[in-house]
């Protein structure tokens, strides 16, 4: 059922504006749950809409299971999409909303109701079948939207910030549900998010998009600890980027939680010490360089103090400075 998604050289440039997508390369193997992350305005939603057929690309191919989809109208692509807001039909019941793809495909009423009912049960909303959608909470509505997307039996499921409008508790429940349903069907899945924690939790692989290009696509751990460029490092929170004389032509990245405070040979002055509940965020001045660190509140030094610290060698990651990267840095 599930198919591989392969995007090559995709350009989307609405007339009269600067290109939103500038040569996107992305491959998601069949059955994988990939997350597309990136700052606001990077072009994530546009990429998802182009894959679904809601935006016309100026160049490039979008292949699903080996066949190019660029000329195929949106309603003939074997894909389903969950939008940021649930987009339910206000005049129809919950069950009729879920059955919409079946109705569009010409499935008979009895069969339609049976299949939609099964989907409703899978998202844990069986009791809501005959309800109107007006009374649903945000989380319930998004579950209905998810059931509707799965009802189409797609080969590819696209989710555009599906958790963005939910409170943390509901977000966690829906996140689990998405992962569970995706794994049960081994459905190829591309999820857009701007939240890096959500990206790490949801993605079996993680792609970062910046200014209309995919800059790195790897497993979450590699992305977080071995970023390919400064922009990747910065987005995923490896906020200490150091250019040291001992390492010419490279940038050393280290995550704030990996900076060791209270031991070692290096000395720094504490500029800021901000209490964040479970941790204290420190900003250090080290020979004119700003270094960010996270530390247990019990061990936190006050602002103005001089402390010993260390940059553990095994936690340092050297980013090679390529021409492309310098180009990106200049435009930021």
């Amino acid at each position: 059922m599930s198919a591989e998604l392969r995007i090559e050289g995709l350009v989307v440039a609405p007339p009269g504006t600067t290109p939103v997508l500038r040569g996107v390369e992305l491959a998601v193997p069949a059955g994988e749950r990939a997350v597309l992350a990136g700052p606001s305005g990077a072009g994530k939603t546009t990429l998802l809409r182009a894959i679904a057929g809601l935006e016309d690309p100026a160049a490039g191919t979008i292949a699903l299971g080996g066949s190019d989809q660029t000329g195929v109208p949106a309603h003939r692509r074997r894909m389903a999409m969950v939008f940021q807001d649930p987009r339910l039909l206000p005049h129809a019941s919950v069950l009729d909303n879920i059955a919409l793809p079946l109705r569009a495909a010409g499935v008979k009423r009895a069969e339609r109701r049976r299949l939609a009912g099964e989907q409703l049960e899978e998202v844990g909303m069986a009791a809501f079948a005959e309800r109107r959608v007006a009374g649903l909470s945000g989380g319930e509505a998004q579950r209905v939207a998810l059931a509707r997307a799965l009802c189409a039996e797609p080969e590819l499921l696209l989710l555009d910030e599906p958790l963005a409008a939910l409170d943390p508790r509901r977000r966690e429940a829906l996140r689990r549900l998405i992962a569970e349903l995706q794994e049960r069907r081994s459905l190829t899945c591309l999820i857009v998010t701007h939240d890096r924690a959500e990206a790490a939790e949801l993605g079996q692989s993680l792609a970062l998009m910046i200014e209309g290009r995919i800059v790195q696509h790897d497993d979450p751990r590699t992305i977080f600890e071995r970023p390919a460029t400064r922009a990747v490092a910065r987005f995923f929170g490896a906020s200490n980027l150091l250019e040291l004389p001992e390492h010419p032509g490279r940038v050393l990245a280290i995550r704030p939680e990996h900076v060791a405070i209270g031991s070692g040979t290096l000395r720094a002055t504490v500029l800021e010490s901000v209490y964040r509940g479970t941790q204290v965020a420190l900003a250090l001045d080290w020979q004119g360089r700003r270094i960010e660190a996270l530390i247990d509140p019990a061990d936190a030094p006050a602002a103005g103090a001089t402390i010993a610290f260390e940059l553990p060698a095994e936690r340092l990651w050297a980013i090679p400075q390529t021409a492309d990267e310098r180009d990106l840095e200049l435009r930021e």
């Binding site: 057929g53 949106a74 309603h75 003939r76 999409m81 206000p90 129809a92 793809p101 569009a104």
Partner: peptide, 21 residues
């Protein structure tokens, strides 16, 4: 838009989405 991605052609969209809305 939602209906398009859900597989509805123009006539189905008109009948199931636009006119009822």
């Amino acid at each position: 838009e939602m209906a398009r991605v859900a597989g509805a052609g123009w006539l189905a969209r008109l009948r199931l989405v636009t006119v009822p809305s």
